[in-house]
Amino acid sequence: MEESARKEDKIKEFESAALEHIDSLFNVGMRMTRNREEAEDLVQETYLKVHRFSHTFKEGSNLKAWLFKILRNTFINSFRKKIREPKEVHYNEVEDFYLYSKIKSGKAGDDSLSGCVSNVYEFLEDEVKNAVDNLPLAFKEVVLYSDIEELSYGEISEIIECPIGTVKSRLFRARRLLQKSLWNYASERGYLKEKQGGRK
């Protein structure tokens, strides 16, 4: 009897530790489903699975990564989504330091570092969100895990069940794609040009 009570306490403890990450899960869920209702369902289902599979969690491993893995599998299974690497994106489509060189060339003659960096901050929230949301799922998820959740390549590779090399190259490509679409937003809006014009 005493032992079962202890076990119960342990489960409750584990579940409350898992609940501490609910904001991260909900945020990633929102970005993956792009729909509030679906994200809520997804997170709820994830926690029911956490309850059911709590015994499979290896003590000492990263709880957050484990939760993301369950979230991801639930997303794939329940929403019948496939996360595959899109073939139509060519590796060399976007060059290195894409945004940096674009901004830099727009500011020819002005070598001030702070000037060009501060430009990046001028992207509006919606634009960044849209750029992230519109990434193919395989790219989006690595950006979410790495840039937003700050997980290591090793943890990401466990979540998405891919070798670390794949994580690395996907992340690299994802960031370049993000920079490209942000540049497109920026030039559509024309505010970079305005700035440029104002300086001249």
């Binding site: 904001d23 945020n27 994200a39 330091f97 960096v117 990046v120």
Partner: peptide, 22 residues
């Protein structure tokens, strides 16, 4: 300069996307 740009970019992605409270 390049590095700081990329570092800021990473930060911006985080700052502007991590907004959904449960």
């Amino acid at each position: 300069e390049k590095f700081e740009f990329e570092q800021n970019f990473k930060k911006i992605i985080k700052d502007k996307t991590f907004l959904h409270k449960t």
